[in-house]
């Protein structure tokens, strides 16, 4: 028993090291002068300290504008996906309308289409509708790509919520929609919040569509923006600043998501499904 436990800890430590070391190295690089981080062999502990990379990020790019753009796009897309996805999943799982099985299969097929194939048709379309450099040019494709899988995941979860609860709600006098938002949605929060967080991260990190459809500097999202940091001279690639930029936008995001998850899951699932 003891040995097992010991081995478990060793395993966990190795895994943690494997995952966290690159992040440690990123942090290290971001606070050292470029001369130090380029040294060979690499130095694995801090030797010098500078804020210049962080200051450089703010001087080099409109970081706050990028963050604002990313936030607007990711939040809107996530909100729409969760709203439409959860209502569709509810309909499939609890109302059992005629043709819900073909509908689900159709959604699954939609999910197989690689988003990359949509870039050029979408570009044409958005150009025609004057939607390039408009938040909608990202919000629309992000939502349509995410909704099918979201419906699948949520429908599977909603199926597990006893149908008697939905029926009790209807008998108690609730409309379908009331039964959805008063009963099924609160009980589905663990799945809904997970889907929301994953969606948000996916939108936040999306690169290709954001690069293609947002061509004006002040409309760029953070992922694209950071990749566009360039050095003073064309041969110089400012790794330190890129890394600092990546950390600046990632760390707060991670913290926010952790807090959100903690709050949502502990707060709203107090009554879990098992009565």
């Amino acid at each position: 028993m003891r040995l097992k436990r010991f081995l478990l800890y060793v395993g966990v430590t190795i895994m943690a090291f494997y995952c966290l070391f690159p992040i440690y190295f990123l942090v290290l690089d971001s606070i050292e002068p470029t001369s130090v981080s380029y040294s060979s062999p690499p130095i694995l502990y801090p030797v010098a300290f500078t804020f210049s990379n962080y200051i450089g990020v703010f001087e080099n790019i409109p970081l706050l504008t990028y963050i604002k753009n990313s936030t607007i796009v990711s939040l809107s897309a996530t909100a729409i996906v969760v709203l439409i996805g959860s209502m569709a999943a509810f309909a499939v799982a609890k109302i059992k309308f005629r043709g819900s099985n073909p509908f689900m299969n159709f959604l699954l097929i939609l999910g197989f289409f690689p988003a990359a194939t949509m870039i050029f048709p979408l570009y044409e379309m958005f150009a025609n509708f004057h939607l390039l450099n408009n938040y909608l040019s990202l919000i629309l494709p992000y939502t349509s790509v995410s909704i099918p899988l979201t419906v699948w995941i949520l429908a599977t979860y909603f199926e597990q919520i006893p149908t008697a609860l939905y029926e009790a709600a209807r008998v108690d006098g609730m409309s379908r929609f009331q039964a959805f938002y008063k009963i099924i949605l609160p009980l589905g929060i663990p799945a809904v919040s997970t889907v929301a967080i994953l969606n948000f991260i996916a939108c936040w990190n999306e690169f290709i569509l954001a690069l293609t459809f947002m061509t004006k500097e002040n409309m760029r999202t953070i992922t694209v923006g950071i990749s566009m940091i360039s050095g003073r001279f064309s041969y110089q690639y400012p790794w330190g600043e890129i890394i600092a930029g990546a950390l600046l936008v990632t760390v707060p995001l991670v913290i926010i998501i952790f807090i959100a998850q903690e709050k949502i899951i502990s707060g709203l699932t107090a009554g879990a499904i098992k009565g």
């Binding site: 609860l165 009790a168 008998v171 108690d172 009980l187 009554g271 098992k274």
Partner: peptide, 21 residues
């Protein structure tokens, strides 16, 4: 009529209490 329009009260075999309330 839909269930909500019938104005009937039902006690389910599983009780079907709302777990989050």
């Amino acid at each position: 009529l839909s269930p909500s329009e019938r104005d009937i009260a039902m006690v389910f075999q599983s009780y079907a209490l709302y777990p989050h309330m």
